[in-house]
Amino acid sequence: MCNLSGFEIAPFYVWGMYSEREIEPASYQIYRVTINDKQLDYSTGYFPANRFFLLSPLMYYQSLKESGDPTFAFLQKKLGQNLNLLTPYIFSFENSAQSINEFPDWYKKYLEQTTGKRIQYLQVDVLDVSWRKNNSITVDSAYHLIND
């Protein structure tokens, strides 16, 4: 029943992989990571779990900056005024502004761990790309996510 309603309790998940209808977006987003003026190709040469840790927290950081913390929003929606009762404990679940601000430093350290290189300069850009018919992907627009 939990599974049917989409409710998950680790490690008993909803196994609905790729079952949601895919809608073609106006553009796809990819990340361009530049370390010491050299572009990092994270799509090859890294184990899947490594790529996961290079990309997923980055996507989460972007979404936290743009739309706020989904866990906090969920608790607020479910508990309403009663959320005040949780105020002393909410920091356990919520990503504070401080931790969001600390992310670029953490990401730099994790990239140093992954690449084995000392990073003087890090830049992460979000690229909006689209597919062309001649087997190519073109960049429509880009903006800085991290410039450190």
Partner: peptide, 28 residues
């Protein structure tokens, strides 16, 4: 080799417990 052992994670700062009671409890 994937740099995902606990000591290799460099004390991560962003957590994602989301709606899962087990994750919420662990972070609590």
């Amino acid at each position: 080799f994937s740099n995902t052992l606990v000591h290799q994670l460099q004390s991560p700062v962003l957590k994602f417990p989301y709606l899962d009671p087990v994750f919420l409890l662990m972070h609590f």
